Amino acid sequence: MAEQSGTTLLKDREQVADRLLEASAKHSHDPDTELDWDAPMEPGKWYVPERIVSLYDTPIWKRMSEEQRIELSKHEFASMASAGVWFEIILMQLLTRHIYDLDPRSSHVTYALTEMADECRHSRMFARSVTKLGTPYYGPGSVTRFLGRILKTTATTPGAFTATLLVEEILDRFQRLTFPDPSIQPLIQGITRIHVVEEARHVRYAREELRRQMANCPAWERQLTRTISGEASVVIARALISPAVYASVGLDVEEAVRQARKSRHRQETMRWSAEKLTGFLEEIGVIHSALDRAAWRRSGLL
């Protein structure tokens, strides 16, 4: 039976999990065998679409050569891939905590384990892509890593699923622009296509569980989730592009960071990346008060 909470119909956990397990059986991918890791990069092709590079349409951008712009896109892809490995490892720990006390025979737990297997492949795929591109590993700074450690250790269950969606839905929006774009490197198209296909299931699982958790958890847990998710939005949004990418392409780091943050195009791009997510979080009460919205605005996602 589906659970009823107010006017919102909550889909049965097992029904959702059964459908996702069926989809996983039909549409799971092995990046090690399905992607051509030995093929050389193609000259003149981008690594992320031009308009989602952080400095796009800034004064610095207008002074950069085409070659330097493409090189920056390579480092920004590597930064997002590096952040992706960090995110995926946190998400696997959050999922493990979620199922710790649940019946391992259930489809809900079986799907969580299936998703963790997907995330292991994604982490390896992202790490391998950074190696292939020959860029630095742009891992999170010490403060960001410490905040991630707190999140993965202390987050409530609804907080864990909010953090999951924060990462997955923002990257998914960028990657849905990337994989069909013929101006993008074929390897990057393949990486983002695999990630989009498999993350669609993860988003469905997290959305359904978060809706259920917010409807049924005690008031204190709802409020804690609102507070933690607002702060997490700031950390995650800023972790996507490491300032070190600018140094890697010969730019003044402080000036590049300043222009990226002031850029109206970049601000609109970040809000666009999260608009489906923030709409959903407002609908189910994660973004609820003026104070909640203030934190999300500080992140640039609202």
Rank of each mutant, 00 (worst) to 15 (best):
M1P: 01
Q4Y: 05
S5P: 00
T7I: 08
L10T: 13
D12L: 13
A25R: 14
D30V: 07
E34Y: 05
G44M: 03
V53K: 07
L55K: 08
M64N: 09
R69M: 13
K74Y: 03
A78R: 01
M80F: 09
E88I: 10
Q93A: 14
L95T: 05
H98C: 11
R105C: 01
S106Q: 01
A112L: 03
A112D: 04
D118W: 09
E119M: 09
E119N: 01
H122K: 07
S129M: 10
Y137D: 04
G139L: 00
S142R: 12
T144L: 07
F146Q: 05
F146S: 10
R149W: 10
T156K: 04
T164E: 02
I170F: 11
L171I: 15
D172K: 09
F174Y: 15
S183K: 09
I184R: 03
Q185A: 12
Q185K: 05
Q185P: 00
P186F: 07
I191K: 00
R201D: 11
H202D: 00
R204K: 12
Y205F: 15
E208F: 09
A219E: 07
L224G: 07
T225R: 00
V234Q: 09
V234G: 03
V235T: 13
L240E: 02
I241P: 01
S242K: 01
S242N: 11
V249C: 07
E254C: 01
A260P: 00
A260L: 05
K262Q: 14
K262H: 07
R264W: 10
R271W: 00
V286G: 02
R293E: 15
